[in-house]
Design a protein around this nucleic acid. Structure first.
Lengths: 158, 158
DNA sequence: GATCCAATTGAAAATGAATGTCTTTGTCAT
DNA sequence: ATGACAAAGACATTCATTTTCAATTGGATC
């Protein structure tokens, strides 16, 4: 989906909720729509301030909250203590592999896994809304020169 | 695994690292080993203080950090802003289904899903260490009387 | 274009969980 | 018993996030 379309969705949502459109919010949203990484608030703020230096943290925060509400952004916690935002995926759902050494985040999709999940959930009487699958490990590069003290960019067990 | 065995593992770990065993730590660990929920620090502290009122937050925090280090506890974030601790599973790895309405956490295990994950990871050149799979949705009870404004006990998309 | 009202902004303060500091206390080997 | 050193407990600090509030702005209406 192109940024323009997302912008339209946002406008509709704003109108429907009786909110007002503002220069700051539009610019923050547009900036976010043009990223394709899992961006944190700090990173997004930095990006936004390159063109509009006086925008406040709270405004970015509130904008991302709004985008998350209307489904245009997805908020994720990968365990490093920072919430990251991801653009509405173009090609459907995907999951993540996070390198525990360098922190690199790779996306992947697998239909069979999704199908199995559906089965499991139905069997337990649940009505699924969404899911998170995160694999943690060493990426190819970090596997190569492994053997040192690990840095652990992300915590949590499983 | 029984609490006694876990206690032994802890003692070994403490000894191996040249640490000292203390009444407080033992009691906190024992209390934790006897829970079978995904308990937060606050909840555990409350539980501990029922018998030992003067134990501090920091001590519980440090004990859980220690237990996590030696693999006897697993720390998890389900998106409600609090870290929860889970006992070392008796029957191997499992994943979670979280009800977005009432917050209930249900465990499940599925070997096929695990196998598929392995495949995906290998294909991408990653060396897996651990993973998290969390399904979010409505449990049987909450599905039954659905239709009201949802409470959303956990955030995040997918 | 002027006016009014509600939403928005930005700075600062508040919150809340996690972690660090520091003094006192407890453990354990000698 | 005692001395060295880890741990406890109280408190302070950090850090991300969220709220507060006065000033500003958007946009509907006159």
């Amino acid at each position: 989906m192109q940024p323009e379309n997302k912008m339209d969705i946002l406008k509709s949502y704003i109108e429907a909720k009786g909110l007002k459109s503002t220069t700051q919010r539009d610019f923050i949203a547009d900036t976010f729509f043009r990223t394709n990484t899992h961006i944190s608030l700090d990173e997004l703020l930095k990006k936004v301030r390159r063109k509009t230096p006086n925008i406040g943290y709270a405004t970015v925060y509130r904008t991302m909250k709004l985008l998350t509400e209307c489904g245009l952004a997805i908020s994720r916690q990968f365990g490093d203590g920072q919430t990251r935002y991801e653009n509405l995926p173009e090609d459907g759902h995907h999951d993540h592999i996070i390198c525990t050494e360098c922190g690199k985040i790779t996306e992947f999709a697998n239909v069979e896994i999704e199908a199995l999940q559906e089965q499991v959930v139905r069997r337990l009487g649940f009505h699924i809304q969404y899911h998170k699958l995160e694999l943690y490990g060493l990426c190819r590069d970090c596997s190569a020169h492994a053997g040192r003290a690990p840095g652990m960019h992300a915590l949590g067990g499983g």
